[in-house]
């Protein structure tokens, strides 16, 4: 269970990357398409904001994964 959760955490980055392509093809208004359009116009503030959001999401997911370890395996204690 623990390795599964670890990999799921790592996969989040890939998932967001994949959603970028999907959103572009199907014209779905998500953060991926926002990045794509901002890149086309070289709109740096939008890019910065989008990356900050993505980075924050990934970090929060990392924390959640760490907290889940303690729930899943009683031998692991949060200090």
């Amino acid at each position: 269970m623990i390795p599964t959760v670890t990999i799921t955490g790592f996969l989040m980055g890939t998932m967001i990357g994949g959603s970028l392509l999907t959103e572009t093809i199907f014209a779905y208004p998500g953060i991926g398409r926002l990045i794509y359009e901002a890149v086309g116009k070289l709109d740096y503030p939008v890019l910065q904001g989008a990356f900050l959001t993505l980075a924050a999401t990934v970090i929060v997911i990392g924390i959640i994964v760490d907290l889940l370890y303690a729930k899943l395996d009683p031998r692991i204690k949060l200090t």
């Binding site: 955490g9 790592f10 989040m12 980055g13 890939t14 967001i16 990357g17 994949g18 970028l20 392509l21 991926g32 990045i35 794509y36 890149v39 086309g40 070289l42 890019l47 989008a50 990356f51 993505l54 980075a55 990934v58 990392g62």
Partner: peptide, 15 residues
């Protein structure tokens, strides 16, 4: 580097 969302970063750098 491993946790960063790769594709958006690649796209930005390529642009």
């Amino acid at each position: 580097f491993l946790t960063l969302p790769m594709l958006p970063l690649m796209i930005m750098m390529a642009a």
